[in-house]
Write a protein that binds this DNA or RNA. Structure first.
Lengths: 113, 113
DNA sequence: TAGATATATTGCAAATTATAGATATATAAA
DNA sequence: TTTATATATCTATAATTTGCAATATATCTA
């Protein structure tokens, strides 16, 4: 086990590589960098509720063009490896980037690859 | 098409993610960071021939424990996406890291992910 | 030339991933 | 409570990946 939570271990890194080994999932992560300009339906970009930058599944779905179930599954894969975080508010589930993990991943690449 | 050869495009990046979505292939890349300490059989670490740091397939194979054919295939996957380069010298094929691509990949992660 | 050695390629079964439709669940609204 | 909406989960099939044994190829050596 890795004591230092700031560093990814090889296993976690490989999980992230798997998650990113798919163009659509990479695109989702990239779109979430700038929710305001990528998701015209501002309706679901949460400013309050303590989850700024969150975008709901259906907005992501309409932007990517894939099916609802695939969208949900892709987001769950990104969530699983920590690249995004989510919050359920009412009937919507909002997803946004988890910059902590992404930073750790960058560090892993630069130091361990 | 991407005019700037210093930047990876999304497609190339996804190919690299696929290559790294496997613990053994990541390990190979990591071992090649320090061939001198990772491959005791110095015999095939080329100092001359203009391919310093190159390690032959059988040395990599014995270090990873996977079969000869799998080793060869993994190296070909790493070669395909540019993470390693190779040189055939006599009956041996030497592989070493392609630091150019790896640097570009790092840059891609930091800027595009 | 005939082995011996190193690597690549081929063929294949097993495992995993991709993707969507159908269905279930949770919440909101009437 | 019924209905509508949003999302997750389940199921199924196609596609891809894994990893090896067998085979082919290239080179070296006797």
């Amino acid at each position: 086990m890795n004591k230092d939570l700031n560093l990814l271990d090889d296993e976690q890194a490989v999980e992230i590589f798997k998650a990113l080994a798919n163009q659509t999932r990479v695109s989702i992560l990239q779109m979430l960098k700038d929710p305001d300009s990528n998701f015209s339906t501002q309706a679901h970009v949460i400013k309050d509720e303590g989850f700024e930058g969150g975008v709901c599944v259906s907005d992501i779905r309409s932007k990517t063009g894939i099916s609802q179930s695939t969208t949900s599954q892709y987001l769950s894969i990104l969530l699983q490896c920590g690249l995004v975080e989510m919050k359920r508010i009412g009937q919507w589930t909002y997803y946004r980037r988890n910059e902590e993990t992404i930073k750790r991943f960058e560090r892993y690449i630069c130091q361990n690859i």
